[in-house]
């Protein structure tokens, strides 16, 4: 790994200032960034640690549930008063990964197979940064791409709590990411379905399922639907056709589990 300057700011304002340095990067829990730095896929000049600021850590509120950007998966699993979200956080990686990895880091990275983007998109979460608020529908732009600008910091994420919700993850056992994961959230205003792990564009909504489930919230409502394999990922873990099949299966499971 190339060397870098380690910066531990005391406030979000100090962190934002430090991130103005050329090739500086924010460090959340490092559970993705450190492996990529070992592989020399990333070589920042400076890492600005976001983990030591009390203003960015913690879970509060009941609806919406507000989670600080530097809150670990483990803390969300233990404390979030949004059961489907807590359960999702408790299935990320393994216990040691959950002790370090953060929600802000996961959302900012927008790995196409990560779990949190599905929760944020299906819940209609609002991502708050040091500059503005971004609704989830505008936040996820593409694979590893978000609406975040250079040096912009996710300070918190605000989750409206649905009447019913569930996340079903078909585990890719080597990476512990989702081969396909589906988050279903039923609000008074309708149902939102977000799919991770499947598309080459990253997390996305499945609008046909949303329409069917908004009319009839049952797994049977999905029966007539099919998922096209165009634009889905294909790799040694699963073909695009297999992932397309899984999207429907996992959506049905999520609806059944949500009750």
């Amino acid at each position: 790994m190339h060397n870098f300057d380690f910066v531990k700011p005391g406030s979000v304002a100090e962190a934002a200032e430090a991130l103005k340095a050329e090739d500086a990067m924010a460090l959340g829990g490092g559970q993705t960034l450190i492996p990529t730095m070992k592989a020399r896929l990333n070589a920042p000049s400076a890492l600005v640690s976001l983990s030591g600021m009390a203003e960015m850590v913690g879970v509060s509120g009941s609806d919406p549930v507000v989670i600080g950007g530097a809150t670990t998966h483990g803390q969300v699993a233990a404390e979030a008063g949004y059961p489907a979200l807590a359960a999702l956080a408790g299935q990320i990686g393994d216990p040691a990964v959950r002790s370090r990895g953060t929600i802000g880091g996961s959302l900012a990275n927008n790995d196409p197979a990560a779990c949190y983007p599905a929760a944020a998109l299906a819940s209609g979460a609002v991502i708050k940064t040091d500059r503005r608020e971004i609704v989830a529908d505008d936040f996820f732009v593409g694979m590893f791409e978000t609406a975040l600008e250079e040096g912009e910091i996710i300070t918190s994420v605000s989750f409206p709590v649905p009447a019913k919700a569930n996340y079903q993850k078909f585990l890719q056992p080597a990476s512990r990411f989702a081969l396909v994961g589906v988050f279903v959230a039923q609000f008074d205003s309708g149902v939102r379905v977000a799919v991770t792990g499947a598309s080459e564009e990253g997390v996305h909504r499945w609008s046909a399922a949303e329409e069917a489930l908004s009319a009839n919230f049952s797994a049977e409502a999905l029966e007539g639907l099919s998922v096209a394999s165009d634009g889905l990922m294909s790799d040694l873990h699963g073909s695009a056709e297999y992932r397309a099949h899984l999207v429907k299966v996992m959506t049905g499971r999520a609806v059944r589990a949500a009750g």
């Binding site: 380690f6 460090l27 490092g30 450190i34 216990p95 040691a96 990964v97 370090r100």
Partner: peptide, 8 residues
């Protein structure tokens, strides 16, 4: 618990 190979 943390993986000390993945923490600075």
């Amino acid at each position: 618990p943390v993986k000390s190979c993945t923490m600075f």
